[in-house]
């Protein structure tokens, strides 16, 4: 158990400087993803509103990155100030057999192996996600956890980690209103930020529902940051 965790971490660390032997063992879909990514370099001087953004969220069986697994992935594209619902990404995975449904069911409401969803398998879902992401900038709330879950999943299937530029809306919110006496650390949860920026909290804890809330939060935070900085936001401003 401990050993595989160590191996995962090693793989993850070497992900961005992949050796030839590693590259050779990558599945085809991941190699394609890397090719797409290599073809697109973003300059820090580019205007943020001109860049392709994907807001991402993962629902999992729990919060232990070593033990828990992804149950569903949701993503929405944002261009400029628009969220395109037609270009959503949504996928569900069956609950792994050794996982007893616990508290997480109460959180995300995904009943294990419910017939309401069409399930795919992990490699297919990952391949579709990478295809959807392309070279977009990934935006998410406390996105570090979701990324870790996805990267571990990628590693389990012989692929390297995600290489996209990442922006965390929690960090953005913190930058806009730093934690301190008036704003305790817990105030950067998606719930409290949504409340602060008056975003209705419907469909919380579904991958796509959280994505939508995060996407609106992202647009609202950006506007406020642009006002604070005093000019249109470029990539380097973040």
């Amino acid at each position: 158990m401990e050993g595989s965790d160590w191996l995962d971490r090693l793989r993850y660390r070497f992900g961005s400087h992949a050796t030839d032997s590693e590259t050779g063992s990558w599945p085809e879909w991941y190699r394609n993803y890397r090719v797409t990514l290599a073809g697109r370099t973003v300059s820090p001087d580019q205007l943020l509103r001109e860049l392709p953004i994907v807001v991402l969220d993962a629902e999992t069986t729990g919060l232990q990155v070593t033990r828990d697994r992804i149950l569903s992935l949701g993503a929405l594209r944002v261009y400029g100030n628009s969220i395109h619902l037609a270009e959503k990404f949504e996928g569900y995975l069956p609950t792994p057999p050794h996982h007893t449904p616990g508290d997480s069911v109460a959180i995300h409401g995904i009943i294990p192996n419910s017939r309401r969803y069409t399930y795919s398998d992990e490699p297919t879902l990952l391949a579709e996600l990478l295809d959807y992401l392309g070279a977009s900038i990934i935006v998410g709330h406390h996105i570090g956890f979701d990324l870790e879950m996805i990267n571990r999943s990628l590693a389990r299937h012989g692929a390297g980690p995600l290489q996209n530029r990442i922006i965390d809306t929690a960090q953005l919110a913190k930058r806009l209103r730093p934690a301190g006496y008036w704003t305790p650390e817990g105030e950067y949860s998606l719930d409290s930020l949504a409340r602060r920026y008056r975003i209705p909290l419907s469909d919380r804890h579904t991958a796509l529902g959280d994505c939508y809330i995060t996407a609106v939060l992202w647009l609202k935070l950006l506007t406020r940051l642009a006002i604070k900085i005093g000019h249109d936001l470029h990539l380097r401003d973040l």
């Binding site: 100030n81 628009s82 969220i83 395109h84 619902l85 037609a86 939508y212 996407a215 609106v216 647009l219 609202k220 506007t223």
Partner: peptide
């Protein structure tokens, strides 16, 4: 119709 909606955010004055 709803599935094709674009949600557009407009800061004040835009």
């Amino acid at each position: 119709v709803a599935a094709r909606v674009e949600v557009r955010y407009q800061p004040p004055g835009t």
